[in-house]
Design a protein around this nucleic acid. Structure first.
Lengths: 321, 321
DNA sequence: GCTATATATGCTCTTTGTGAGTATATATAG
DNA sequence: CTATATATACTCACAAAGAGCATATATAGC
């Protein structure tokens, strides 16, 4: 091992304030208590598009209070959502914790957000909304995304004016000039649009706003975080399989990846990659489509796929303009 | 845009329980309040090794209560740490939020952990500990890591017994058999050792424990999370530069990357990559080492490195091997 | 039968990135 | 003059990725 300094086993003498912190106690005079809420971003795929399960006309996520019996936050969230909605949750991860300052009473509100995958065709009573209804520019598969991106570029250029550094940021996050489009930067893109005053949540507004549904509180930002995370996650974990039926065709798998990435991929290369990594194993069954040759059904092969790299499957679309 | 179903603008009729949740109110009879604490994992590099700033003989992180005046959690944490320790914080990110169930009184304890980078040679009064004192197996630069990893492999093999799937997990996360070592999996490795009962925090124990300092509560797990995150982060953001002095030699930069990754790198290739991406610009000054030719001092070039944010530009790190 | 459609498979190419090696100036201390 | 470390310039092999071409095969509808 590399030797490291300060290994005497005793910490230095500390100023009072810090020694106090060591006890991890809130100020005894005024213990700061928070209402704490768990927020669930539930994702599933239908119609070749990623959807979220929403409340209040697409403006809110399901959420519930943290209760005392919860052993861990994640377990608590899972149990709670499964009991309330009857849904089985697949891949689950914590997204972000944020606080609302106000709340007239003497305490804050802390919200802990989670993202969870839900298998296709699950039964539930929540309203599904396409994620791309909130971020139309993120779906580069749509023909309309070309002109939309052009319009965004124009407004960003106007916002950046002569500020070269600011324009650099716009160009790299939105894949302008000769930069490439990076699908994992959806959070950065949303934040940039927020800064530029092009979304209704901005504290100031700048010219006509962009299309796209808005949400309560910071929820649209949470959704952008979720989109970034899921796009990153499916690259190097087998999480996609929690969105698909137990058995699926290779085209379904590819389309699920395309739905999440918001881009089309090269079919032959995709299959080559998937199969040479032994991510899936074929079943005896076939899927009969309305037209064309029946497709072999596959299933996820978890034993050989502790870590997988579906990354190579991110193909650029024919250059848009 | 892809058309998406359920766009009627009205959510379905909801069961009572869920409509209730929509209001985001905790059970009126028993509002669940939490003590909320901010935990800071402060990282800096000294002696070519990543260190954390600790309290209580290396067993605890600085932490403090969330107070009412904080506008955002991140801002609150920054202000609080900077006021208490006098340190300037560089790259900061939220790590994870976790809860302790007990606390005799009627409420839980919620801890929100952050990681922040601190520039080399900063003045402070906290005790520094090498991160690799907590996870000796994570520093593959150390000669001792070879035998240690061998010993770990043996004990994991014993734990896995004939459970092939379990051994698969061990092999891929620890780079055994013919799998490569992936430095970003440090959290997964810690969790696996925890499961196998090889660390003192495990709820059960299995044969002699591994070397490595322990910490209070879940803090060692938080530290493993921090290590994973920082290794992932420096790959595609210029965050490393917040750990180095304003001016540095290319060797210093390489050694900082090596320290975080826990691996050695090929000097010529490293320089080739750094320079062709224009991440740094040379200054007029030189560093005079005790021996050898003076090294040119460089500085971070933020204008071209927003571009580094991800135009496919990555800081070189050893690939998995 | 034929056609349209979509699955399934095999095979080239080129380009890029990367890991690794060799060689050789150059500047300083002792 | 030597040891040391910076700095720079190459080459080479190899794998992976992006892209294209070709061709079976199986179904439905006409």
């Amino acid at each position: 091992m590399q030797p490291s300094p300060h290994m005497t086993g005793h910490s230095y003498a500390l100023p009072d304030m810090i020694s106090h912190l060591e006890t991890s106690l809130p100020n005894a005079a005024q213990p700061v208590l928070c209402e704490t809420e768990l927020v669930a971003v539930l994702v599933s795929i239908s119609n070749n598009t990623p959807h979220i399960l929403t409340l209040d006309h697409g403006r809110s996520f399901p959420s519930g209070p943290l209760t005392v019996e919860h052993r861990s936050l994640q377990k608590g969230m899972r149990n709670w959502v499964e009991r309330q909605t009857g849904l089985k949750l697949g891949h689950t991860e914590q997204l972000y914790t944020f606080a609302d300052p106000l709340h007239g009473r003497g305490h804050q509100m802390v919200r802990i957000s989670y993202m969870a995958f839900i298998r296709q065709n699950s039964e539930h009573t929540l309203a599904e909304r396409s994620i791309y209804d909130y971020f139309p520019w993120e779906d580069r598969r749509a023909p309309a995304s070309g002109p939309l991106l052009q319009a965004i570029a124009d407004r960003l250029r106007h916002w950046a004016q002569d500020n070269a550094h600011r324009w650099q940021r716009c160009a790299t996050t939105f894949g302008l000039d000769d930069h490439g489009w990076n699908d994992e930067l959806s959070l950065a893109r949303y934040e940039l649009l927020w800064e530029a005053g092009l979304v209704p949540e901005s504290t100031w507004q700048n010219a006509p706003l962009l299309p796209g549904l808005s949400m309560h509180r910071d929820y649209r930002r949470v959704l952008a975080t979720a989109l970034s995370r899921m796009r990153a996650k499916i690259r190097y974990t087998p999480a996609v399989f929690d969105l698909l039926p137990q058995q699926f065709t290779l085209l379904q798998l590819q389309q699920a990846m395309e739905a999440l990435a918001g881009r089309f991929m090269h079919k032959q290369n995709f299959r080559r990659l998937v199969q040479q990594q032994k991510l899936v194993s074929r079943t005896a069954e076939y899927d009969t489509p309305p037209q064309g040759r029946p497709a072999q059904l596959y299933q996820f092969a978890p034993q050989t796929a502790e870590h997988c790299y579906l990354a190579g499957a991110k193909l650029p679309l024919p250059a848009i303009s």
